[in-house]
């Protein structure tokens, strides 16, 4: 029992981090049909910028804020420089964001150095609780709570505010929203920047969780996020939460019971979903 609980906590924490990454990706795709392969690059940039300012200032909160700001700035740059010139051309979008991903990843090595950076958990969140036989690591609980708070905030924004209404309408039919006199591209910029900030935040939260960060991390997590987006259904916000938790749990249980399958399990889930239900499990948007 204690084993299962700690595996569940592991899986939930990983799932939450992937959700932060995937939620931006899924909205960006749903709104403008842009498949952003550079999303993983923003994840590492958030991690590095946050960790370095955390080490410099000694405050974890400063690190988080810097990570979010980095995400916003990079999101703005990416949207203006990389996405805008190739609107509407799917193949070119895939190609160009992939190229930008390479640049972002190598820039990390130039700016912060190519070595693996060790990260410590902030003191307040370090250590663990012991309940009977179960050891619960505090930082994982923190990530799970943080993830749910972000989910709640985003959910509130999407369902209760005007911009959320526009975004949801845009996911369903962006041409119609444009025809009703709303500048969908400006909305898209906002969504893109938010998504990038979430990715950067996920990177920053991930750093103490794993204890070490390196430049290639972005690609690995981006692939996870893509898998989640596909499973959850592109453009479906709730779908990405369910799929992220599913992927996180599957990963943590497989890593314990069938370790040699743990790397492959997510890919297998995605292949099965794509072949039998290519629109995703929870999709609301048109296929």
């Amino acid at each position: 029992m204690d084993l299962i609980i700690s595996l569940v906590i592991n899986g939930l924490a990983t799932g939450m981090l992937i959700f932060l990454l995937a939620s931006g990706l899924t909205l960006i795709f749903g709104l403008m049909h842009v498949l952003n392969f550079a999303h993983g690059g923003l994840f590492v940039w958030g991690a590095y910028a946050g960790v370095f300012s955390y080490a410099y200032s000694g405050s974890f909160i400063v690190g988080i804020i810097v990570a979010i700001l980095t995400g916003l700035v990079f999101g703005f740059i990416t949207e203006k420089l990389i996405i805008t010139p190739v609107y509407g051309n799917l193949v070119q979008q895939i190609l160009i964001t992939l190229g930008f991903m390479l640049v972002l990843q190598e820039m990390i090595k130039v700016v912060f150095g190519p070595n693996v950076v060790a990260v410590k958990v902030p003191e307040l969140l370090a250590g663990s609780w012991q309940l009977g036989d179960i050891i619960i690591i505090k930082y994982r609980i923190f990530i799970i709570f943080f993830g749910f708070i972000i989910f709640g905030l985003l959910h509130y924004m999407l369902t209760r505010t005007k911009i959320g209404l526009i975004v949801r309408a845009g996911v369903m039919n962006s041409d119609m929203v444009q025809a009703l006199g709303i500048n969908i591209k400006r909305i898209f910029l906002v969504v893109f920047m938010t998504g990038s900030a979430l990715a950067a935040l996920a990177g920053m939260l991930f750093a103490p969780y794993s204890g070490a960060i390196y430049a290639e991390l972005g690609m690995e997590f981006a692939i996870m996020a893509f898998i989640v987006v596909v499973i959850g259904g592109m453009g479906s916000f709730q779908g990405s939460l369910f799929a992220a938790i599913l992927v996180g749990l599957a990963g943590s249980f497989m890593a314990y019971y069938v370790p040699y399958l743990s790397l492959a399990v997510n890919m297998i889930i995605m292949v099965v979903v794509l072949i039998f239900r290519p629109q995703g499990l929870f999709t609301t948007a048109k296929g």
């Binding site: 498949l35 193949v91 492959a264 995605m270 292949v271």
Partner: peptide, 28 residues
């Protein structure tokens, strides 16, 4: 046969996943 019926971005990701699977198999 399995993947080409999908749209371009799904196809791109599915091929990425399958070749990732093959890489894992080769590693193991």
């Amino acid at each position: 046969l399995l993947t080409l019926r999908l749209k371009s971005h799904f196809f791109a990701m599915l091929t990425m996943a399958i070749s990732g699977l093959l890489l894992v198999v080769a590693e193991k």
